[in-house]
Write a protein that binds this DNA or RNA. Structure first.
Lengths: 235, 235
DNA sequence: AAGTGGTCTAGACCACCCT
DNA sequence: GGGTGGTCTAGACCACTTT
């Protein structure tokens, strides 16, 4: 692993365990330089990424302040697997794999950026939190990138399978968020009535070599939906 | 202005005018080093920020690819003033200032991070797109940071007033997104019926010195709401 | 082999905050 | 004045892609 990534992960884990509390200051750049035996620019790259991601704030002349992170209810602006979210928030969550099917056409409304090459592997899942069905996920995976999806991978975590089993490097996604009325399938699978709207997040996920990995449609019952975002000013 | 910021703005404006088209490659780092007479790390800082913001993708060994940006319908993960959005998307939009009032209590549900020190300056505005009222914005501004808000600033752009008139440096915001039913005031001011839900975005905006600038509640009619996000993978 | 982006270094100077 | 973060430099080596 790169040096700055090691530092990033190291400090992040100290933030998660509470070794550094909100309101505390991180060790200064110079301290980290000594501790990790690296140059200052390398330290700055790591701490800069933590600031970019909203964990800390750099205060000129003062130090690096640890921010309060009750965050991460559902970060639309980050690519996180459902499993990572569940773990981070200590949710009681289960996962029903409803369907895995090859050679499926990709719905037109999902192809907002790139034209899809053709057929895909479809994975349909339902996420339950505290026993209540909350989210329906429809994944359409590019068969030119992923040959096959075993049920165990869908049950566990597709991202984990892609990254750690297949060695794929996920880079970015474009996400469209809209509010729509519940479809018949939504009502049936989530056991909700017609008057509960749905938050629909359609995304297109790319690899670092810019190949298209997958299209996803994620449908949340709106009455239980909360998202917490960290936004930075670009000027 | 810093050198890398100048390069960032320079290239961004070339991307906006279409000098660089999606699918094109930007000039290489070395080319920019020669053009701007700076070191490579400075070029990399500028181009890296463009990649971070989703304008381009860095491809090892190949170059810097210009991505397709039909993006920016409503980027929740970025802090942009309504005016900046309108300009970038070439919308036909007007702005009604409904109320400016000092010494107003801040609603409890907005204070999710910091406890507010007390009273605030309240600004209530309605945004109309193509003549239709679409969004209600309630701003509660910290009087310890901003003494007074002239009506012209609320009419034009609060962010422009804060940054360019008062010299404040906005850094980050924490935003909570929920879906709620329309209130009586929503229905009256936006002329919608009860069955149209609202996308409610509550945010807390901070300065670079970590002072609290404002709380904002932004209420969108959900049937017209679209957000397009660019999300990066952190691993 | 030549060109590209990715990482890292050791040093410099600056602006800001605190004592 | 000493410590902090912010910017910038000139150079190095690497992995990757293309010719």
């Amino acid at each position: 692993m790169d040096k700055y990534q090691r530092i990033y992960q190291d400090v992040l884990s100290d933030l998660r365990t509470g070794k550094y509390q909100p309101g505390d200051y991180l060790p200064s750049d110079t301290k980290f330089v000594m501790r990790y035996q690296v140059s200052r620019e390398t330290v700055r790259k790591a701490v800069g990424a933590l600031a970019e991601d909203g964990y800390v704030q750099r205060l000129k002349g003062k130090g690096t302040l640890v921010l309060d992170r009750k965050h991460f209810a559902f970060p639309v602006s980050m690519i996180e697997s459902y499993r990572e979210l569940v773990e981070e928030m200590h949710l009681e969550s289960t996962n029903d794999v409803l369907r895995i099917q090859e050679q499926v056409m990709i719905p037109q409304e999902l192809q907002f950026e790139k034209a899809a090459s053709g057929l895909s592997i479809q994975v349909v899942r339902r996420r339950n939190v505290d026993g209540d069905p909350m989210v329906l996920d429809y994944d359409y995976i590019n068969p030119e990138v992923v040959e096959t999806v075993p049920k165990s991978a869908a049950q566990d975590s597709l991202f984990n399978y892609f990254e750690n089993q297949l060695g794929l490097q996920i880079d970015y996604a474009v996400k469209h968020i809209t509010i729509e009325t519940a479809s018949a399938e939504d009502r049936r699978l989530l056991q909700i009535s017609e008057d509960i709207p749905m938050v629909v997040i359609r995304s297109e996920t790319h690899l670092t070599d810019n190949r298209l990995l997958s299209f996803t449609e994620s449908r949340h019952r709106a009455d239980r939906f909360t998202s917490i975002e960290f936004a930075r000013r670009r000027k």
